[in-house]
Design a protein around this nucleic acid. Structure first.
Lengths: 233, 233
DNA sequence: GCGAGGCATGACAATTCTGTGACAAAGTGA
DNA sequence: TCACTTTGTCACAGAATTGTCATGCCTCGC
């Protein structure tokens, strides 16, 4: 896993020891605090990737810290897992409402905790870059249905977009015209195989602009069909 | 709460009934499926905001569905909560590893479930964390139900407002007419897809006044639908 | 070097898709 | 009830896309 840091806010030494060990095994960096003031300073200062927060702490509860983080608009980015002995349904709901992303009750299973940390890191880290395929200067964004070369938007028709999506999802592999018709046009249409050539031509033309030329990514395989082969592999 | 849709994948009718009621109270739209094939089709087609997934289902386990979603790169955006009677630590870990964001064991407390759904929607970005969304000169205020360009109030109908809210909460992403009908009109209405075009037209017209013109924020994605894309990204 | 087949290219008409104004039905509030 | 707003549908025009074809270039085998 990436170099992720976990802030553990917990005053019981035994639990901190246990967590430190579990996090080390999971290849996560552990930062520790035993009160909410230190915790707040660390969050502002060192920006951990995730926080494990006990409810009952000396000098102020974890819920207070959550409220303060929420007020400072820090929770939107920062995932928080409550890890506490307060097990009542009302407690759980309160914790989640105030801004926690998950709520685990003590005693807890270390491996499950790690799995939940990973799930949350995945969710919070995976958000910005979602369905993007990149090939050199060429970037295709499925969700927004757009293609860029070096950040500049390209214009192309729906069929060209579908064709390029298919190619970029299956690079370095030659496809016959018939296979492309199946995959891109859908199996139940009757069109000439030569039609593929024309759309390849249009796609190649679309892959050129002032910022660069990616038209050579699409290579002709004589006697067979075409292949998408970006440089640098 | 915003107009969020929850896909419930569960074969026990009693639990589905209970969930339907709980979701209705929480102001969440409920879509139901009792097998993984239907569930997959619904996810691809109607793009629910979150999925509640049982483990044991007729015709294939929930874990299989998760694996398939992961392979299709759909889980990165789609939050999934496992909701199952399989309570062992290994099950929990397996579920989370395969891509679930949370794991709740039956029997469960409905209010806690709702709180966890809300926490996850908040994290995944489906729910705007603030009551106020801004995009360039354009400002939408959820609580007062008003829209401004450069401080000047815009006039628009309820449907246009809902459409704009949805777009502003999900910028930079192309939606089909069918998805917009699901998300903005609500799943259970029958209206022509072209109706969306007309409301897009009305919304675009409403987004112009003396102070500025934001109508170009709404872009046509030919062959697909529309996308909200404010400048400056 | 020379055909023959395979591919690239530009043009074009048919088709499909979207923008737009109009209109009647349904809903709202006084 | 009446004026007014909102909503869904339709028809038409304009624009973009698509499939096909004719032509010319390129490559390969001989």
């Amino acid at each position: 896993m990436k170099n992720c840091s976990v802030l553990v806010v917990e005053d019981e030494v035994a639990i901190r020891d246990m967590l430190r060990m579990a996090l080390e095994i999971a290849d996560l960096r552990c930062i520790e605090a035993d009160n909410i003031l230190d915790a707040h300073a660390i969050i502002v200062d060192r920006r951990p990737d995730i926080v494990l927060l006990d409810w009952m702490l000396p000098g102020g509860s974890g819920i207070e810290l959550l409220r303060r983080l929420k007020r400072d608009k820090l929770t939107e980015e920062l995932p928080v897992i409550m890890l506490t002995a307060k097990t009542s349904e009302d407690n759980v709901i309160q914790g989640l409402e105030v801004g926690a992303d998950d709520y685990i009750t003590k005693p807890f299973a270390p491996r499950e905790l790690i799995a939940r940390i990973r799930a949350l890191l995945r969710r919070s880290g995976a958000m910005p870059s979602s369905e993007r395929i990149e090939a050199g200067e060429l970037v295709l964004d499925m969700s927004s249905h757009r293609v860029f070369i070096a950040g500049e938007l390209l214009a192309m028709g729906p069929t060209e977009f579908k064709l390029l999506s298919f190619f970029m999802a299956h690079p370095e592999r030659a496809y016959t015209r018939s296979q492309l018709l199946d995959q891109v046009w859908g199996g139940n249409v009757y069109v000439e195989e030569r039609t593929v050539d024309v759309h390849i031509r249009r796609l190649r033309k679309a892959l050129q602009n002032d910022m660069g030329d990616c038209s050579h990514f699409i290579q002709t395989v004589r006697g067979t069909g075409y292949r998408f082969s970006p440089p640098g592999i």
